[in-house]
Simulated scan of single mutants.
Amino acid sequence: MTQKARNEDSIAGPVAERLLDWYDRHRRVMPWRAKAGETPDPYHVWLSEIMLQQTTVATVKSYFLKFLELWPTVEDLAAAPQDDVLTAWAGLGYYARARNLHKCAQLVANDLAGRFPNTEKDLLNLPGVGRYTAAAISSIAFDTRSVVVDGNVERVMARLFDSHAELPKEKGEFYRLAGLCTPDLRPGDYAQAVMDLGATICTPKNPKCTLCPLVDLCQGKPHAESLPRKAPKKTKPVRRGYAFWLERRDGTILLCKRPDKGLLGGMVGFPGSEWTEDSLPPAPNTVPIPVTNLTEISGMVRHTFTHFHLELSLFKGDVVQDRYEHLPEKHFWARPEEFGDHALPTVMRKAADLAIDALKGEE
Rank of each mutant, 00 (worst) to 15 (best):
S62V: 11
Q53F: 06
I201H: 04
E325M: 08
E329D: 12
Q106P: 12
I253T: 09
D357Q: 14
N285W: 10
E325L: 07
R18I: 00
Y63A: 00
G361L: 03
M157H: 01
Y23I: 00
D76P: 05
P204N: 10
D260F: 12
W275K: 12
E75I: 01
D150K: 02
T235N: 11
D21M: 08
T87P: 07
D322G: 12
S139N: 02
P228K: 10
R335Q: 13
C202V: 07
T304S: 15
P237Q: 15
F332Y: 08
E154H: 04
T346H: 09
V57E: 01
E311W: 14
N206S: 15
E274Y: 10
P187A: 00
I140T: 03
D122K: 12
V156A: 14
T210Y: 15
F332C: 03
F339D: 11
T119C: 06
M30Y: 12
A358W: 05
A16L: 04
Y324D: 15
D76W: 04
Y132M: 12
G13T: 06
H309Y: 03
P336S: 04
P81M: 01
H331R: 10
Y43K: 07
I289G: 04
D184T: 07
E170H: 00
R6L: 07
V74T: 02
G317K: 07
G128F: 09
P336M: 13
D162W: 03
T119S: 15
A343W: 02
P345S: 05
C104T: 11
K221L: 06
D83Q: 14
T133A: 01
E362K: 08
R335T: 14
Q54N: 13
D122V: 09
F142L: 08
L70T: 01
F315A: 05
L52W: 06
G299N: 12
D353Y: 01
D122S: 14
P259I: 03
L160N: 03
E225F: 13
V149W: 03
G361F: 02
A98C: 07
P281E: 10
P14C: 01
I201R: 07
S146Q: 03
A231M: 13
G269S: 11
A141V: 00
E247T: 10
P40E: 01
C104M: 11
F116K: 08
